[in-house]
Design a binder for these strands. Structure first.
Lengths: 132, 132
DNA sequence: AATTTTATCTTGACATTGTCTAATATAATA
DNA sequence: TATTATATTAGACAATGTCAAGATAAAATT
């Protein structure tokens, strides 16, 4: 029940060869592919698939909750005159970014991550800023 | 002692009108400007300043530790077939992204952030993956 | 089956973010 | 002043993403 076709059907997304190619790759991959990675793969199965279709399909999958989307990679950067360590809160509506003082949050459990040597970390929160 | 000129001198960055314009804006702004925001402002003071110079200067400031840099905004996105909640670890050398199971980390203190209504959050860690 | 309607795809144009190079300008040094 | 080193510029380029218009295909209706 994990083939691309039935996944699409189950989510009421009309299956097409293009969408199947996208889903096959993206839902199996344990890496974190970029849209362009997906495009490259999809073109192997479906050489005429267009960039727009890949983007549309990925967005569809995200809307349906089948796929997560993370803005971790570089590509759009903002600068921060506050060079104290701090966390960030992003207003989902406006995109505004607020600094959260470092000592307001505590992250426990990092020392249990044996596979990783941690240079730095931060908490990113998203939501809505309350009006005063 | 907080004017752009002395800041640049103190850090042994040769002051130029272009750099001063960049520093003035970026070190005072409490918002989180993008490179393009900085460019726009810098051109008010220094109409001929080029995109390259702004980028160069921002990178210089980051290298010297005068400025923080965050990749929070959208612009380059990766997708994630793991739709369970989880945190992320980014390998600083390779750029590889690893999922950290949700229950491995705990973030305390969120309820003290009275000004914000939190829809979601995650911890982003950066460092080096240990080889086995 | 034929036609209309609807959904999907493609192409190509465009915007944004960022890097790079070659040429020029400026400053520092001898 | 002549030389050298450092900064700046313009423009080309690449990557990521959005959008609109027309072409295609599928579904629904008659």
């Amino acid at each position: 029940m994990k083939d691309a076709l039935s996944i699409l059907r189950r989510c009421k997304i009309q299956p097409t060869p293009q969408r199947i190619a996208v889903v096959e790759y993206v839902l199996k991959s344990k890496a974190h592919p970029s849209a362009d990675d997906v495009l490259s793969y999809a073109r192997k199965k479906c050489p005429t698939v267009s960039r727009a279709t890949v983007y549309n399909t990925l967005n569809l999958l995200v809307e349906k909750g089948l796929l997560g989307m993370q803005t971790i990679k570089e590509g759009a950067v903002v600068f921060d005159s506050n060079i104290e360590k701090h966390h960030h809160f992003v207003d989902s509506e406006t995109g505004d970014i607020y600094d959260i003082p470092w000592d307001q949050l505590e992250v426990k459990g990092k020392d249990k991550l044996k596979d990783f040597e941690i240079f730095e970390f931060q908490v990113i929160l998203r939501g809505r800023r309350k009006k005063k």
